[in-house]
Nucleic acid binder design. Structure first.
Lengths: 114, 114
DNA sequence: CACATCCATCGATGATTGTGGATGGATATG
DNA sequence: CATATCCATCCACAATCATCGATGGATGTG
């Protein structure tokens, strides 16, 4: 299939300009993508999204086939990305999707999961 | 702030079940996220999205502050992820967003960029 | 036919990441 | 108090990744 809208003439050594893309946007967005660029973390976020209720770390440790330090590690990454919040209740630590997610972030998750 | 919907009683050593999350979905989606989990690749995709026209590799090499092999490397990743297509025209190779993007993927990019 | 330009690939390197064992703190429970 | 459970942190290791120099093929120009 042919691509249209190609420049008919082009001189060698002469480059065209790119559309302006905010560097800050790229950095911030890539950070969010990195947080979601792992099957385990995606499963965690989807679980919290679907449950719409806090979930305990021990449940993730039991449900996913990974060690407890690994689960904690992934949760810390999600928390660092601002996607989840945690609350300690007795011996347990419960995680939930962050209350004040950006509408854009919420729509993104809805697009990904819902 | 208190988190509601926490189980009032919970016995130690007993874990709850997680909402079912498709493993295939997690793997596939994480692959897509990985493709977008880099500022350079995000800038590339956003440029192609905004330009809505093919862009030459040499323009990316000139516009972003990276070497030509690095630019090619990133484009190969985007292509492998099914996000872009390429066509050779003379000495130049033009990339564009893939024609047949999944509606879900297209909405995702619109959500991210638009 | 030389020569220059554009680009993909290869190889190497330094940085980041996913994973789990070990440890210690915090919190019940008997 | 002694013990068991839950969890975050530390440490180590293998794997992946982003980057670039070097190289060679493809294409167009003089």
């Amino acid at each position: 299939m042919a691509i249209k809208e190609l420049p008919v003439l082009r001189t060698r050594g002469a480059c065209c300009e790119l559309p302006r893309v905010s560097e800050r946007w790229a950095d911030q967005t890539s950070e969010l993508m990195k947080a979601l660029a792992d099957p385990t973390r995606l499963t965690m976020v989807a679980s919290l999204w679907k449950a719409d209720a806090p979930i305990c770390i021990c449940d993730f440790t039991a449900g996913l086939g990974l060690s407890q330090p690994t689960i904690s590690h992934h949760m810390a990454k999600l928390k660092e990305a601002g996607l989840v919040d945690s609350e300690k209740r007795g011996v347990w630590v419960y995680y939930r999707l962050r209350e004040k997610l950006t509408p854009a972030t919420r729509r993104l998750l809805a697009q990904l999961i819902g």
